[in-house]
Amino acid sequence: MDAAVKRFFDSDLWFSFTRSPVTVVSAIVAAVCILGAVFAPWIAPHNPFDLASLNLSDAFKPPAWSEDGAREYVLGTDDQGRDVLSAIMYGARVSLLVGLSATIFATLLGVTLGLLAGYVGGALDSLLMRICDIQLTFPSILVALLVDGVVRAALPREVHAEIALFVVIFAIGISEWPKFARTVRGSTLVERNKEYVQAAVRIMVSHVLPNVLGPVLVVATLNLGLAILSEATLSFLGVGVPPTQPSLGTLIRIGNDFLFSGEWWITIFPGVALIMMVLSVNLLGDWLRDALNPKLR
């Protein structure tokens, strides 16, 4: 164990990490966002879903540093007296959950199909790549919207309300698989022609897969930010996660209604949280891409 830890701290990856202040800062911001989201039920100052603790007389409190602010509501409260900071922490939980699940789903689907396309080749390859081409013609958010709309139409309303979270994960995952499939297919083609693969047939999973995982990891990290943004956009448009499980996008949509009466904090703070989360993940992804790219070393 100690040896493994030591090897990690001696690695090129760790060295390039410590050499980039931007990356270290984004790692810290990302860690704060993720920890705050994961441990929200234990560390959030209030429980925004506990109706008993809500008090309408606390509604529309501005942030603590302004004149009318209350110290117990650091970032102010919304129309029902919910603490905005706690709502953000719970919302980030949903955003992260959906973003991560969608990315994992897209990775699994894309890696499987990409491996198949690259390894089997022939008609299957052309068919899959043709589908990728067609889908990549359209922006991923449009594909996600469409899949969401079709599933919404195909299912009865009650069933849909129950599984809405999975529908969003599915829709975003479907909208992003072609990037993974293409990356993996490209690397698979390279690996397949190497002699160690030609020596045996049942080697796809045990030997080709590990060699294509590096690029996949980079695409996945960069896609996580995109998936979180897609979810936020869908929820902002009102077709994302159900209102009973508000994500950051839902909070922004709800807060948007109060923009004109001057209660800007209800929508701006969830927006800031979203940007911090996405930006830090993206910067980490950029760094990972450069660090894992042997050409740039």
Binding site: I252, L259, I268, L274
Partner: peptide
């Protein structure tokens, strides 16, 4: 890095709500 809808919201907040120059 800003998502489209947040850019819109920020512009509305500044130019429509605070300054009142443009319709939202």
């Amino acid at each position: 890095s800003l998502p489209t809808f947040l850019i819109g919201i920020l512009l509305i907040l500044v130019f429509a709500v605070w300054l009142g120059w443009l319709p939202s």
